[in-house]
């Protein structure tokens, strides 16, 4: 952390602090008001409704699975991008970030167009018993598609921060490329990968547009829930009073998990 040695209330600092306070207020006030306006009892009762409970469970589980797939497929790619130079690399890096910039409902259409049962990949997966339209698998790939960039970019930065000489030394000491990766590169990039995973997971649970197209109601543990962001929107059709406790609950749970994970990721930083 840097320290301001001589902070003075000159005009620039005054303006910047005021603007900063306003934007923090803008971020935190709606969140706090939504979480705090329903009574704790109302929040608890809302959670006990099957429709809400299974929706939140589905959302969290699907985002976790999406993140695990992201780790499996994204981390090796991140390593390659961090370590190797090849023709078309910057094009590839740009491509990875495209899901962030396109409208997510359009992303959902694009996914449906490839993974729908009557289309190519959809047919292939159907053979092995996986369908994506209105199933949890669809929720997972929709979440993956829009949130992978967060994990890949963060993991790539993590690997870039690992001195390549450390890997070279490991090799001369008898480590195969695999062992050098798992014993040196991966542990040293672990924090970045973890925080990237948290971001991916968080982005996953907030996904709305792509899931709306690809997997609206999905069979899940004997129920037929929608993901939490869709539930909030659905309930809004019946009025603010009806949707507010759900929104509060979703924000609260997201916030608690997000803060907890960040504390794990940054533990030891101040040691």
């Amino acid at each position: 952390m840097f320290r301001l040695h001589s902070f003075r209330w000159d005009s620039m600092n005054v303006v910047f602090v005021v603007l900063g306070v306003l934007i923090m207020f803008f971020i935190s006030f709606p969140l706090l008001k939504t979480v705090l306006s329903p009574s704790p009892g109302t929040l608890w009762n809302t959670l006990l409704q099957d429709e809400v409970y299974y929706s939140i469970l589905l959302t969290i589980c699907a985002a976790v699975i999406a993140t695990l797939f992201g780790l499996l497929f994204g981390v090796p790619l991140a390593y390659l991008l961090a370590r190797r130079n090849f023709r078309g690399k910057s094009l590839l890096e740009g491509l990875i970030d495209v899901p962030i910039v396109i409208p997510h409902s359009a992303a959902g259409v694009a996914l449906l167009f490839v993974f729908g049962q009557q289309f190519l990949l959809g047919k292939v997966f159907h053979v092995i018993g996986i369908d994506f339209f209105n199933t949890i698998a669809g929720v997972i790939i929709a979440m993956m598609f829009v949130s992978l960039p967060f994990l890949i970019d963060s993991a790539k930065e993590g690997f870039q921060g690992v001195d390549v000489k450390l890997e070279k030394v490991a090799r001369t000491l008898g480590a195969s490329p695999w062992r050098s990766f798992f014993r040196v590169s991966l542990p040293l990039a672990a924090r970045s990968i973890f925080s990237g995973s948290v971001m991916m997971w968080a982005r996953g649970i907030s996904e709305f547009g792509a899931i709306l197209i690809l997997a609206y109601h999905v069979p899940f543990l004997g129920h037929n829930p929608v993901v939490a962001p869709i539930l909030v929107a659905d309930r809004f059709n019946y009025g603010l009073d009806y949707t507010l406790p759900v929104a509060g609950l979703v924000i609260l749970i997201s916030l608690v998990i997000f803060i907890a994970l960040r504390m794990i990721a940054y533990r030891g930083d101040r040691a």
């Binding site: 001195d163 000489k165 450390l166 070279k168 030394v169 490991a170 001369t172 040196v184 542990p187 040293l188």
Partner: peptide
């Protein structure tokens, strides 16, 4: 075996 100028010890 190799020893680099900056030692390259495994920090973890």
């Amino acid at each position: 075996g190799i020893v680099y100028q900056d030692q390259s010890l495994f920090p973890h």
